[in-house]
Amino acid sequence: MSKNVSAPLLRTARLLDLVPYLNTHQGIALKELATHFDVTPAQMSADLTTLWMCGLPGYTPLELMDLEFESGYVTIRNATTLSKPRTITFQECVALLLGLDLIAASLPDDRHDLLVAISSLRQRLTDLFGIPVKVSAIPAASGEITNAITHAVQTSGGLLIRYHSLYRDEISERTVMPIDLYESSGHQYMKAFCFTALDYREFRVDRIDSAKSTLVSTDVVEQKSTQEKITYSITAKQPSRDVAERFAIADMPAGGSIELSSYSRQWIERSVMASGGAVLLTSPLAIRDEVAKKAQLMLNRYKEA
């Protein structure tokens, strides 16, 4: 239920949903019923008392709902009008459709039956509304890889991964022990102890090509962080959305200098190159010289051709 619905309306909705639920769960314990609807037993008793007063016009015992709950177990009779589950709202439908999409993407290859079931459910949910419901969710990384990571995190197991490092532009094989899977600025990351680097590293999950479980010795893994951050300064000559997103800066004054930091020298160099004329790297000088040298070499090649 949407959060902007008031308390009395939330209660009305709960009472309406109680009737069909009781119809299929005759004799349920009051406590269990309260838990299912996420309220206290006292609130549930109050709900049932209110419901007991409701029925068809006339409101004689013939028309009122017949509820019995004094014994601590609840039964309902004479409630045919409300006996069927209430239809879901558009928002509830969208929430389920997006969730189903995500599950469809994580299904193992041998569960084609579930894929068929999901597509049938999607169709039936969509048909509830007069308009085409167009929603989709595509997970950031293949389900298989996130599964392997989750499993390794849970069991302190090792993984042999093929990782594509964008900064170095290399594909490498590494043995890691994942310790965390998290999301940041729209990307999924794995934090892991890397046995190649003998230190903790963060990996973008969508750049892991494959992950196989492997045996690792946990005594090598100890807390240490030897990496040092490089401080650098850039000036935005032509502020643009691409540059703002590439360097993750919220506020980018034209011509003003911004000081930033990164663990990777290659990342800084490549990000400046990719920004073309839009960004000027003012420090460190070594990287600045490298950018100029690279640009010159590349230009030479285009002149020769």
Binding site: Y21, K84, P108, T146
Partner: peptide, 23 residues
């Protein structure tokens, strides 16, 4: 809230193990 409504069908869930449902 949608699941609460669906529970009124009284159809018991058939637990399925999808290791990928961690997304």
């Amino acid at each position: 809230s949608a699941i609460l409504k669906l529970s009124s069908f009284g159809v018991p869930a058939d637990p399925i193990d999808i290791p990928g449902a961690s997304q």
